[in-house]
């Protein structure tokens, strides 16, 4: 399979966002280390791309790179947004895109809001920046509409409130209102519900889904919760140690997970009729200690015969639209050889 074909396989015609060979490196000591390593993926309009992986896999680093929000990182590769490489944009041009055409929802809604600014003004600022011509009055009207849209009761009252006066769920709604104020075409949500209770999580995910339907936006949904991905995503990318190890449509990924990492993750969440959970040995290594040669996941499945591993695992398309970084995954098994839990094997 040729590279060009492969890249096209991951993407579709005219994707909203097409990332090619993106690498993001952080400086530690006097050396740069890649936290995102040669990632290529695409997002279409009206599509939710889920990104899963343990913490430290590079999910946030990837999201921040797309928004170009990193301060001191070295970023290489192409980020084509509506066909145009935004890596070449000047800061002022980038500012026109951010908050307008592409927007982000952050994980921790308390720290993501300015503690000394009434929330109404924080939402209004996004409007002011991208639609400077609308009147102050009209802007306030729009903010009130947005507050209503994200399900905040008594918008007039909340408009004047400060973040600390609101509950976690309310704050996350404010963060979302900021993100959707200008109807972005691309919405990146970095663990939007991790800090919230399940019932609030369900409401927030519902809201994101509805907004996506309304605006036909492309959504990148980052999470470490496989249940959230299963409910929300159209396609899923599994990230480990800065690389995408598997990418597939959501049903294939859950019913026919191939990469050992994907299978391990799925097997570590509690499921029906499972007494013991699978434990992925070891931890995601710190950036400086990531194995850069060969498969990065290899050291966490030491019971697999070393000769079974591939020298330089690459993403291969094993089924249309289903890519795995490895050809030798067929030899993978769990150490106690018991049945894998989960929903796959068709249900």
């Amino acid at each position: 399979m040729q590279t060009s074909n492969r890249v096209r396989g991951i993407s579709v015609e005219n994707p909203l966002l097409q990332i090619n060979h993106l690498s993001t490196s952080f400086r530690i000591g006097d050396q740069y280390y890649r936290a995102v390593d040669d990632v290529s993926l695409s997002v279409n309009k009206n599509e939710v791309l889920g990104i899963v992986g343990e913490s430290g896999s590079g999910k946030s680093a990837l999201a921040y790179s797309i928004m170009r929000l990193h301060n001191r990182a070295k970023i290489e590769g192409e980020i084509l947004f509506r066909g145009k490489d935004i890596m070449t944009l000047k800061n002022s041009e980038m500012n026109k895109l951010r908050g307008n055409d592409m927007a982000m929802i952050f994980q921790d809604p308390l720290t993501a809001l300015n503690p000394l600014m009434p929330v109404g003004n924080q939402i209004g600022e996004t409007l002011l920046l991208h639609q400077p011509n609308i009147s102050k009055h009209e802007r306030k009207e729009r903010v009130l509409e947005l507050l209503h849209l994200v399900g905040i009761p008594r918008p007039n009252y909340v408009y004047e409130q400060f973040p600390h006066e609101l509950s976690g769920g309310m704050r996350q709604r404010i963060v979302i209102a900021i993100a959707i104020a200008n109807k972005p075409e691309l919405l990146i949500a970095d663990e939007p519900t991790t800090a919230l209770d399940v019932t609030i999580q369900a409401q927030i995910l519902d809201l994101i889904r509805e907004l996506k339907e309304d605006m036909h936006s492309g959504v990148i949904l980052i999470t470490h919760d496989l249940g959230v991905v299963a409910e929300m995503a159209d396609r899923v990318a599994v990230m480990y140690a800065g690389e995408i190890v598997e990418i597939a449509d959501v049903v294939s990924l859950f019913e026919n997970p191939l990469h050992p990492y994907t299978r391990s993750l799925l097997n570590s969440v509690p499921a029906e009729g499972q007494d013991r959970l699978h434990v992925i040995q070891g931890i995601v290594p710190a950036l400086q200690y990531l194995p850069r040669e060969g498969c990065r996941f290899r050291e966490r499945i030491p019971w697999i015969d070393p000769s079974a591993h591939e020298e330089h695992p690459e993403l291969h398309e094993v089924e249309p639209g289903h890519f795995v970084r490895c050809t030798c995954f067929k030899q993978f098994y769990f150490p106690d050889k018991r049945e894998e839990a989960g929903i796959y094997g068709n249900s």
Partner: peptide, 11 residues
Amino acid sequence: DFIITARAKGA
């Protein structure tokens, strides 16, 4: 974090 939010708004 809220500074990143501000940047993400396009400020």
